[in-house]
Write a protein that binds this DNA or RNA. Structure first.
Lengths: 209, 209
DNA sequence: GTTCGATCTTGTCACTGTCAAGCAAATTTC
DNA sequence: GAAATTTGCTTGACAGTGACAAGATCGAAC
């Protein structure tokens, strides 16, 4: 507690962080089903039972990884939220932030989105996922205030969240890593734009220029 | 091949079907991570290696289950497609069909949506998932023809698919089974309506009555 | 410099997926 | 209608897994 960095200086250095990193890397490489506590321990250079000491069990480790992912996502969304006052631009920035974060953290997102091994009542998990949700909510409120005063904010939030999450999934970002990160990223950028347009104007609305 | 029903009459009766059913039940009970080949074999009353004979390995069994799920979904979507000529009513019927099928087949949907243990290049899997996608596409074409001639059908399909899939996920239909099926079903019905409205009119559009 | 608690290791257990070999029943072949 | 063959399933084995218990080792506090 004396030094700033000393907080994380254990025998190993900082095992919890190393274990999370190893887990993210492993899942990004082999997919969620390729995960194993023992392999993670091996990669971090510790014995097979070391993870249990910090995270209890598999669920504990994966939950912690998911919380870390939501924390990163929340930061990105909050930044996007303040990037513009125009509701369309703001939502677009949010979509880009979501997708970019997913691309940069495939191992995290694989456990964040759908994973029955994650405890979604965990404190830090709840805090960070709520922070992400609230950033989205603020974007939707901008839309309500400037475009449609009668908009049901809750319904719209669920709608946007589901849509963007579905997009990330459909793009195959969650299984094995996209080896063609380049082309994936390019087509995703287009998708984000068409999604944003459709979310705001709907399928019956006028088309973009 | 002589009799109609004889095709499935093995020692056990019809092991492949029994194994799929046991798998769906097990996953619905304990979630995808609670699945085990040996537990499935136990429930079907056969030895631990019996499944391998029909499905090769875990991936084979889960892929087969996913294909079965998409087949059911495609049937439901095709029925919804023909339920109305009104594009809004048709899409609404499609959304209801999707959600109802998911509710009635939680074990199937848990492996259909996101699962790196499913081989998505499998023939039957491809056939049935394409059949589902094409039913949705036909709905979107109705929208284009009657509401918005300039609609990008492919983009709209991806959008709808992602949205509805995201909704099913967010509703927690894929983890553990919803024990409160009643209330879930009711709130889902509302969600489907608001989703359909938002997909067609967008967040900036006029609100429903 | 001893105590004490946090960090990590070693050893073990029941369980898992997969493979190889064998058995039994059904179907074919003559 | 018996022999041969294919199909359906069982038994046995092996390396790997998650979780637990007990012990070792290190850092810090006093």
């Amino acid at each position: 507690m004396v030094e700033a960095a000393a907080k994380g200086a254990y025998h190993h250095g900082n095992l919890p962080d190393s274990l999370r990193a190893a887990t993210a890397e492993l899942i990004a490489e082999k997919g969620p089903s390729g995960f194993s506590l023992r392999e993670v321990a091996r990669r971090a250079g510790v014995s097979h039972a070391a993870p249990a000491h910090h995270f209890g069990d598999t669920e504990g480790l994966l939950t912690s990884l998911a919380a870390e992912g939501y924390s990163t996502l929340a930061d990105a969304l909050e930044e996007a939220l303040q990037s513009s006052d125009d509701p369309y631009e703001c939502l677009l920035a949010g979509g880009r932030a979501y997708v970019n974060t997913a691309l940069e953290n495939p191992g995290h997102f694989a456990v964040m989105v759908v994973n029955d091994q994650v405890c979604n009542t965990d404190g830090e998990f709840l805090t960070e996922s709520m922070r992400s949700y609230e950033a989205l909510q603020a974007m939707i409120i901008k839309i309500r205030d400037q475009l449609n005063p009668e908009l049901d904010v809750d319904a719209a939030c669920t709608f946007c969240w589901a849509s963007i999450q579905g997009l990330v999934q459909l793009s195959g970002l969650l299984d094995k890593v996209a080896d063609d990160m380049g082309t994936t990223k390019a087509s995703l950028d287009e998708s984000i734009e068409s999604f944003t347009h459709l979310m705001i104007n709907g399928m019956s609305g006028e088309q973009p220029a």
